[in-house]
Every structure is written in structure tokens, then in C-alpha cells.
Amino acid sequence: MLGQNENGVKKRMESRVMLNKVMMVLFFLATTVGLIFLGLLFYRVLTQGIGYLSWDYIRSFPAPYPDKAGIWAGLIGSIMLMAIVAVFSVIIGVSTAIYLEKYASKNKFTDFIRINIQNLAGVPSIVFGLLGLTFFVYMFQFGYTLMAGGLTMALLVLPVIVVAAQEALRSVPSEIEQASYGMGASKWQTIARVTLPAAIPGILTGTIIALSRAIGETAPLIIVGAATAIYTLPDSVLAKYTVMPIQIYNWTGRPQEEWQYVAGAGIIVLLAILLLMNSIAVLIRNKFSRRL
């Protein structure tokens, strides 16, 4: 068969090779589409926002006039909110991970917890907002405060922290735990003094990534009532508050074009903080991955 029409085979071969090359270029171009839009997004935000970005902008409260408005209330609100989220989500998340990795026997119940965590990660964030509204705002009567927002967000990022902490705990070599048990240390002593310290870099990295997700979240906080106009900084966890994404959302929705620039400046601040958080996470990972 081949011998009969060698020319035909060769021709077909050439066209097959050609098609392969064309498709490869196409696949490459498809890959760049995402990157191009990422670049466009950054470019757009920078060119729109940079003009309004100044020290005054950072230190100013919301105002009715675009050139007077600033991000200060949102910036401080976001930081305070993240502090609450970090405290609750790390304590509960790391404890959950320790329980699942070190204490739970592999049975139906732990399988159930595992699948449950997996499913929670897929629940839309706005549904967590509804949860927070029922429980934290109304049932526990925290109202539209930092505490209600913080607890809601802590539950939202909990799956991320649990999974990261589980991975970090699993990556601790069992040899050093054995060494601890061999010295007569008890289980909790071993976990607290050997396993956890060795897992801290991984847990820290996971926590920062979870928080960087939380700091950009808007929808659940709208539901649990983060305010849009705040003229004093929250003085307690039961004070009203706003956060950067809420401010940005509010400004974006206003009809006058100037507000878009104000929003753009806010986005620059938000993205800068995200960049900072992610760089810290990468630094921690690089510094400690060399060691173990």
C-alpha cells in the first residue's frame, strides 16, 4: 500500500505536519488571550487611577466630591477585618487540620468532614453572606459590624486554610515525630513542639493566600452590611465599618466619570496590597522549602 503511492503519503504527511504547526500557533495564541486581558486590565486600572492616587487620597474619608474622596476608611477597615478573619480562621482551620490528620481515625465521619469541606469550598460566597446575615447579624445580634463581617469571612476562607494546613502537616517528615515519641513525649507535646513548628511556613503561606482572597471579597460583605459611607474609623469590633472593595464598588456605580478614576485609584491600592501579600507568601515558601 505504502509503496504504491509514496508521493501521496509524503504529501499527506506534509499537510499533517503543517496542520500540527498551525494548531500549535493557535494554541499559543489562545494562551496569550488570558495574558493579554490581564495586561489590559492592569493598564486600564493604572491609567485611570494613577491621577487620583496620592497621599491625601490614602488618608481621606469618603466624600461627596471626587477630588476630596479617599480610601482611608476602607483601607483600615479591610486591615481590621482581616485581623478578625485571621484569628478565627487560623485557630479553627489549623485545629480542624490537626484533628483530621492526627487524631481522627479514618472512618465515615472523617470522610464526611472531608467531603463537607470540599463542598463548602464550592458554595458561592454570596450564600455565606446570607448565612452571616441570619446568624451573626440577626441571631447573635452583632448587627452590621466588623464582628459579623469578620466571622462571615472567616467561615468563607476556612476550607482554604484547612486544606493548606493539612498539606503542611502532611509534609512534616514522620522521622522527627518518631524522634519526639522516642523521647517519651506525648502525642500533643509532639504535635505542639515538633509537628506544628515544622509546618508553620506552609500554614503561613496558606493563610496569606486565603486572606488575600478574603481581602478582595465584596459580595458577602454587602449582605452582612458593610457600610459605604464611614467617616470615622471603627473603634471596636462592634463598630460599623467599610472595606476597600465596597468603596470601589460604590464608586464604580456612580454615573459621573470622575468617580471611575477614584475607583481606579482604590483598585491600585487594593492590588498593591494583594501583590504585597502574595510576595510575602512566595518569600516564605522559598525561604523554607530549601530547608526541609
Binding site: 522521622e175 522527627i176 518518631q178 524522634a179 515544622a198 530547608r291 526541609l292
Partner: peptide, 8 residues
């Protein structure tokens, strides 16, 4: 133990 296993 078999392999040196100091704590970090």
C-alpha cells in the same frame, strides 16, 4: 534511629 533525624 536509622537515619539521623534531628528536629529543625
Amino acid at each position: 534511629f536509622q537515619k539521623p533525624n534531628p528536629f529543625p
